[in-house]
Nucleic acid binder design. Structure first.
Length: 257
DNA sequence: ATGGTTGTTGCACAA
């Protein structure tokens, strides 16, 4: 079973590229972030024609997350589960696909360490753990994939010095990722690869992609039973090339079933 | 240090 997470930075602007990539790579489950669509604008019919069942949670203009599946899609939860304080933004959707409890998450950017949005980001990560407690159990097959807007370690960043005093690499953010690990999830890409200078996001500006200046902030966080069956994982940086790319590349894992 | 780019119920703001 092939599971992919991809922040596509507007589905409206990216539909053609996303469909071409999907036809090439044939994910069984595709987790999208930043669709920037309201639910009634989501192109369900286009994806159904490619063999997918879809669940979308969006608000238009900003945010928006989706799950596309060829292996079934059940028990959909938009927003946080249970009694967890609901998010005002559309940043998380959860479903069961092929026996795996998958979530597509778009963690708040944080903007800057002194911004209210940074506190919102930390709170959001705390609520994500509470959501997992309410929704499922680490002994199950669980994949929480998405744009975390957090680089797990300095080795996941082109220039760690530039992150000092900034978001994406601060200790409180990394502590939140560690809380997810404590809950029972593992970053499958890092579990499989020791390589440095592998990124999933590059700023559009200044030729950063071509200069190799990026960060690895998109992850597939997997429970142990999934990690044990993970055969292969890669970040497809080719998808960041060419005309009108998203600023993020897709992250792929193949899990034996 | 600054600025560079892309997207949006855009003409400022988020990333």
């Amino acid at each position: 079973m092939r599971v992919v997470t991809w922040n596509i930075n507007s589905l409206r602007a990216r539909q053609e590229r996303v469909e071409a990539w999907v036809n090439e790579v044939q994910p069984d489950v595709l987790l999208l972030q930043e669709t920037k669509l309201a639910d009634d604008a989501f192109p369900t019919l286009s994806f159904e024609a490619l063999g997918y069942t879809c669940a979308h949670y969006g608000q238009g203009q900003w945010n928006g997350v989706a799950i596309l599946s060829k292996v079934g899609l059940e028990d959909v939860v938009a927003n946080f589960a249970g009694d967890v304080e609901p998010d005002t933004d559309a940043r998380i959707i959860t479903a069961t696909c092929g026996g795996v409890r998958v979530s597509s998450v778009y963690v708040p950017n944080g903007r800057s360490l002194d911004d209210d949005h940074y506190q919102y980001k930390l709170s959001w990560m705390d609520r994500l753990v509470a959501h997992l407690d309410a929704d499922t159990d680490p002994s199950h097959d669980v994949i929480v994939g998405g744009d975390y807007n957090i680089a797990p370690a300095d080795r996941d960043v082109h220039d760690p010095a530039k992150l000092v005093g900034a978001t994406h690499g601060s200790q409180p953010e990394r502590d939140r990722l560690e809380s997810l690990e404590t809950w029972g999830l593992t970053d499958v890409f890092r579990d499989q690869h020791d390589a440095d200078r592998v990124y999933s996001w590059w700023d559009y500006r200044g030729g950063d992609f071509h200069q190799g200046r990026g960060m690895r902030i998109d992850m597939l966080m997997c429970s142990q039973s999934v990690i044990d069956r993970a055969e292969w994982s890669v970040i497809d940086r080719n998808a960041r090339k060419g005309k009108q790319p998203s600023d993020h590349a897709p992250v792929i894992v193949d899990v034996s079933v």
